[in-house]
Design a protein around this nucleic acid. Structure first.
Lengths: 251, 251
DNA sequence: GCCTAGGTCCCGTAA
DNA sequence: TTACGGGGCCTAGGC
């Protein structure tokens, strides 16, 4: 248990010195902005980061139950009955979160020295790059033309040319492809046909595809190639590329 | 500053008693699972929730830099040189996060009593429901048939019938519509035409639409209606519905 | 600033 | 369970 005045000091100190602020206690939360929300009393974890990021967590689930991104202006107000912390942001839209603590179990502030960035392996971009280095495993005679080729809007992951000189749009997905992946590829293919004319093929390349997505893919005359990859460190590896054009039941 | 043994006790107590655990200190993080990542030494905030949720936060940005959802099994190991906390999950895929603290500034555990759920206003579902009650503001003679009508996969927000008895698929978006919204609506419209036959119209309803999306919409013979709504408490209100079929420059 | 798409997306819901 | 789409999505990258 911590007094509200003391808790307020901890929060203010964090705001002042650009420290991380952590508060645990019972509170109510009100939000208004892009949407609006109310959350009745319960025990929560409040995090305020030096950049203005504001997070309210409940005791389960990954996602913060209320939040505000970098740039929020935070104010505090303590009374004998409680501590209120408010986050307000004006850009891109006026948004306000108000957290009213009726009990504070802990309030602390911490310096956060950290200039390190995450090194991530196995992103779609990385897989796409790997695939581009060896397109003939995908199909004999396939030659890369361009990576991340910009479209009227959006970008094809890989633009290639097959043995017959036909343009091939390749969309790579790092995980199971659904309907959205097919429509996305289809959009690129149609755009390319309109712009360049002639035959344009579309290949979707992912670890797996849903039955509905595969059906749509076939109806649209697009192709599917199963992508087997291995997450490694320091980099991902494409295990084997095997053209699949057989029946649905395989997927 | 906190000793590693003491910090380990705090974490173990949290795990034991199903409490929330908060640790602040300098650490390195390693992740392997759906992808892989490395993060060198820096000051971070570690959160472990009673349900196994595991979050590592840096001092900026909203998103956790490393994380694991509910269901992770957590283990701790302290040595004279540091404290290591590991989270491992087997479903839906084997994933491991390892956090190695080389300094602990704080480690605490907290009970989290909370049976409250967020009440949210202004969701797409709510707007869709409001719109359904008054479809004639959208277009005279438009009558609702079904809400959240299931498709072969996916669901149309609103299925309606116009004055001529033609089927109308309505997709509602609570924010700016992009290309994806148009392709989504288009998919429903095509599916309905194939299943029911006859004329099927498609109307996209959102606060605004990007230029490219509007172009595609017109090319596909779909329609757009600007949706003006107001976030209220305890509920949202649709301010005015005005059919827009004029030129692109309006948007 | 807008727009587009990725994300270890997360999450709820319905079949 | 899978699959699909919403999300106050967030975030990065291009223009």
């Amino acid at each position: 248990m911590t007094g509200f005045a003391e808790a307020k000091r901890a929060v203010d100190e964090a705001l002042d010195k650009a420290k991380l602020c952590v508060v645990v206690g019972e509170c109510r939360v009100r939000y208004e902005g892009r949407a609006a929300s109310k959350l009745s009393e319960g025990d929560r974890l409040l995090i305020i980061k030096p950049d203005g990021t504001f997070l309210v967590h409940q005791g389960s689930k990954m996602a913060a139950i209320n939040y505000q991104g970098p740039g929020a202006a935070i104010t505090t107000a303590a009374s004998e009955g409680g501590l209120t912390v408010t986050a307000q942001r004006l850009k891109p839209l006026k948004e306000t979160i108000e957290v009213e603590f009726s009990r504070v179990d802990f309030a602390g502030s911490f310096e956060m020295r950290d200039d390190k960035k995450l090194k991530l392996f196995g992103s779609e971009r990385e897989l796409s790059g790997l695939l581009m280095q060896d397109l003939n495993v995908l199909e004999k005679g396939l030659r890369p033309l361009k990576k991340e080729s910009a479209m009227p809007k959006g970008a094809v992951d890989i633009l290639a040319e097959d043995a017959l000189g036909h343009l091939v749009a390749i969309e790579v997905k790092r995980r199971d492809a659904g309907l959205a992946a097919v429509t996305q590829l289809n959009r690129y293919v149609h755009e390319l046909r309109k712009r360049k004319g002639g035959v344009v093929r579309g290949i979707l390349c992912s670890p797996s595809i849903t039955a509905n997505a595969h059906k749509m893919l076939e109806q649209e005359g697009l192709e599917y190639v199963k992508l087997d990859y291995e997450i490694g460190n320091p980099c991902a590896k494409i295990r084997g590329l095997e053209k699949k054009q057989r029946d649905l039941h395989e997927y």
